[in-house]
């Protein structure tokens, strides 16, 4: 399995240049690597370790704490269904039951075609229009069986790729400027 490709590596170096301490770039770098492959490969984590100047074990130590990082391949679309308090009061478990049947998959499982991974999520801060559903962390209007089924068809047909990029792509807007306010004495960038 290959690690970071040259384009990702260039972006990674840009990211690293922002931080006073390299390790602060670790989580953004992991997001970047995940945007390349859809998940975090072992080699990508090793490459990141080298860039940051820590061991691969330290990278994995951080990565394994956070819900959004996947160290195994997952579906092209991560469907997160919130079942927390407000969404539960709005019928989230009924919707989740429907989704399980519709996709023939249990939470944390991936459909056999590799298209969908289902996740029972904690509060996604969409409590006013619950049950809240996101696909690859983008909010979608799919809080009923019918609208959910329509969403699945659109995702399968690939007609939503503009609004919902593949899993792993998080921030499509690139930072345009580097650090500008660094003082000549370099106090802020000391590592």
């Amino acid at each position: 399995m290959s690690g970071l490709n040259p384009e990702t590596l260039a972006q990674a170096k840009q990211l690293l240049s922002l931080y006073p301490h390299r390790r602060s770039a670790l989580i953004p770098l992991c997001h970047l690597a995940q945007s390349q492959d859809g998940w975090l490969t072992r080699q990508a984590m090793c490459d990141i370790a080298e860039l940051v100047g820590i061991t691969p074990a330290e990278v994995l130590g951080t990565v394994s704490f956070y819900e959004m990082f996947h160290t195994e391949p997952i579906g092209r679309y991560l469907i997160s269904v919130c079942t927390n308090i407000s969404c539960m009061l709005g019928g989230a478990y009924d919707l989740l039951d429907h989704i399980k049947k519709r996709l023939k998959v249990s939470p944390d499982g991936t459909t056999s075609d590799g298209l969908f991974t289902l996740q029972e999520a904690e509060c996604l801060a969409g409590c006013d229009k619950g049950p809240c559903v996101t696909v690859n962390h983008r909010y979608v209007d799919a809080n009923t069986s019918d609208t959910f089924d329509a969403l699945v068809e659109q995702l399968k047909a690939g007609s939503l790729e503009d609004t919902i990029p593949v899993h792993g792509v998080l921030i499509r807007v690139k930072r345009e400027r580097g650090r500008e306010a660094v003082k000549d004495d370099g106090v802020e960038v000391a590592t």
């Binding site: 989580i27 801060a125 909010y139 499509r172």
Partner: peptide, 21 residues
């Protein structure tokens, strides 16, 4: 910003680019 807030992250980064400009 919370990692799951993809739209917020994109809007904020875009706004920050504008603010620098």
């Amino acid at each position: 910003i919370r990692g799951e807030f993809a739209l917020a992250l994109e809007r904020l980064q875009a706004a920050l680019n504008e603010a620098y400009q």
